[in-house]
Computed example of a mutant assay.
Amino acid sequence: MNLSSISSHIPSTQPQWVKRFARLGLVAKGVVYCLVGILAFMAAFEIGGSTERNVNKQGVFRFILDQPFGQILLALVAVGLVCYALWRLTQAFLDNEHKGTDAKGIGRRVGYAFSGLVYGFLAYGSFRMVLGSRGSQGGGNSRQTLVREILQKPYGQWLVGLIGLCIIGIGLYQIYRAWSGKYLKNVQTSSIKTELKEMIIRSGKIGYIARGIVWGLIGYLFIKAAMESNASEVGGSSSAFAFLEKVSYGSFLLGAVALGLFCYGIYMFVRARYEVINTNS
């Protein structure tokens, strides 16, 4: 993939356009993660009849839709997710972050592109709900269908296992970003009020660790599916939450992770306010 040649055919970005999209996108992402955290916490302690099986981003969209003026609220979130997706794709193809074209830089830009596609897909799903489709639990089913097809191929188990290891690697990288402080790299912490700075920094660290744990559990489920040659073992965040719920002190573990994801959502609001958005390609 030659990202440089692709970017040469894309018009130059308008700085304010990029900044506004980035900030709106981060706010929308923050809303989604805060709600995921709240719903997961409710599921952990069986508050309001919530179950971990329904706690995923599609479940969040359904929750928003069920609120007063739900269609308007969900439409606003969907627009924000589109903004986030476009910002990530801009980073990937126009290299606003100046990652370059060496192996490391290409890897980061491919990661931006992947993130953009994922959130673009989420935005599409949320717009469908706004227009009348209630959606379904199909995210896990489509994932399992794909894995089932891979398992039927030669070396399919190895490939599914490799996917699981890559997902675990993403989770470990999230935790590494938390412990190393790299999650603060582009955030102007000097502009944050002193009395709030420590709390915000801590919330970001906890949030990235919680997100890393969820990624790691999802990767483990892929490896388990590969080892047992059973696609039904594969799942997303709701399956990761269900796995946590089943272990000893599962409700408390799930509750802790839920609070961490809520912290991650709060930190997205901080990024929306204080992050330096690079716009020059």
Rank of each mutant, 00 (worst) to 15 (best):
N2V: 06
S4G: 12
S12V: 08
P15H: 06
K19L: 09
L24I: 09
L24V: 06
K29R: 12
G30Q: 11
V31F: 04
V32G: 03
C34I: 14
A44Y: 07
N54D: 14
N56D: 15
N56E: 11
K57Y: 11
F63K: 12
F63P: 00
L65F: 03
Q67A: 11
L73V: 08
L74P: 11
V82Q: 01
L89W: 08
L89P: 07
T90D: 07
Q91S: 03
F93M: 04
L94Y: 01
G100Y: 07
A103L: 14
I106Q: 00
G107Q: 04
R108Q: 13
Y112A: 00
G116I: 00
L117C: 04
F127E: 04
F127N: 05
R128A: 11
G132N: 05
V147Q: 01
R148H: 13
E149D: 15
L151C: 06
Y155V: 08
G161W: 12
G164C: 09
G164W: 10
I168Y: 01
Y176R: 11
G181Q: 05
Y183E: 05
V187M: 04
Q188I: 10
T189K: 04
K193C: 05
E195Q: 13
E195D: 13
K205D: 05
I209N: 01
I213P: 09
V214R: 00
I218V: 15
I218S: 01
Y220S: 07
Y220N: 06
K224F: 05
S229A: 11
A231M: 08
S237F: 10
S237Y: 09
S238V: 15
S238A: 15
A240K: 07
A242M: 10
F243E: 12
K246H: 12
Y249K: 13
G255K: 05
A258K: 00
L261D: 03
F262W: 14
Y264P: 01
Y264W: 07
G265E: 09
I266D: 03
Y267C: 07
M268N: 13
V270I: 15
R273W: 09
R273I: 12
Y274E: 06
N278C: 02
